[in-house]
């Protein structure tokens, strides 16, 4: 008979779950703060190179996490340009990597959402005298609940990826071990049932987050139309 996995008995699992949420939600918050205005600017603005920028952004949605991890590792390494900050193998490094990973997703998806909305709002807002940044912010705020979908896509990617956080976090027990790296570790130890169990925990958490966001969105849409 297999012994009951000790990871489930002590506080370590909770610590890992908590860190996963902290890292991924921080990355989502940062990427949202940067990605929504970027997406809105691309949707509303008309400037040279806009089309190329949109294509690049769409392509970056498929950025391999390992590449991002490697890039951030090289930058944060003591031998790299940002080495002096000593961020490598800290949760901060993981937040940076995931932010870079999901920024294109949030920016590209919100660009699409804002552009669709813009077709509806453009004339009315200009008629009222709202131009440029003010008009863009008005649209962003008005479709905020639809933008939740873009943000959730970012969260999904952040919480599911293992390549970037493994490289820049180092999967250090009690410091940078998150759900996905713990799953990878248990898999490599050949403890497939435990790895699968951790995977189920992760999926449950992501499911609960999505359900909560969905309920908020539905309630808001019933309320505001």
């Amino acid at each position: 008979m297999q012994e009951f996995p000790e990871i489930l008995l002590d506080g370590r699992l909770w610590q890992i779950v908590l860190l996963s949420l902290q890292v991924s939600l921080s990355a989502v918050a940062l990427a949202t703060c940067a990605g929504l205005p970027l997406g809105a600017a691309l949707a509303v603005g008309r400037f040279r190179g806009r089309d190329s920028l949109i294509v690049v952004l769409n392509a970056l949605m498929g950025l391999p996490p390992v590449v991002v991890g490697l890039f951030v590792y090289m930058a944060l390494s003591r031998a790299g340009p940002l080495g002096a900050f000593g961020l490598l193998f800290t949760p901060g490094a993981m937040v940076i990597a995931q932010t870079i990973l999901i920024l294109p997703i949030i920016a590209a998806l919100s660009r699409q959402a804002v552009e669709d909305a813009w077709r509806e709002y453009d004339e009315q807002l200009r008629s009222l005298g709202a131009h440029g940044l003010r008009a863009a912010l008005t649209v962003l705020w008005d479709i905020r609940f639809s933008l939740l979908t873009s943000v959730l896509a970012g969260l999904g990617r952040a919480s599911a990826e293992v390549g970037a956080v493994m490289i820049v976090g180092g999967n250090i027990e009690g410091v940078t071990r998150v759900m996905t790296t713990a799953i990878a570790l248990e898999t490599s130890k050949g403890d497939l049932p435990l790895a699968l169990g951790l995977g189920l925990v992760l999926m449950t958490i992501v499911l609960v987050l999505n359900a909560a966001a969905y309920l908020v969105k539905e309630a808001a849409q019933r309320r505001y139309g």
Binding site: Q22, L25, A29, G92
Partner: peptide
């Protein structure tokens, strides 16, 4: 509200870096 969440999370993170440690 997004900004508030961001601040709360980012403030919580450095707490991991307080102890003396080696890598």
């Amino acid at each position: 509200f997004i900004a508030k969440i961001a601040c709360a999370l980012l403030v919580a993170l450095p707490a991991f870096g307080q102890q003396r440690y080696i890598t």
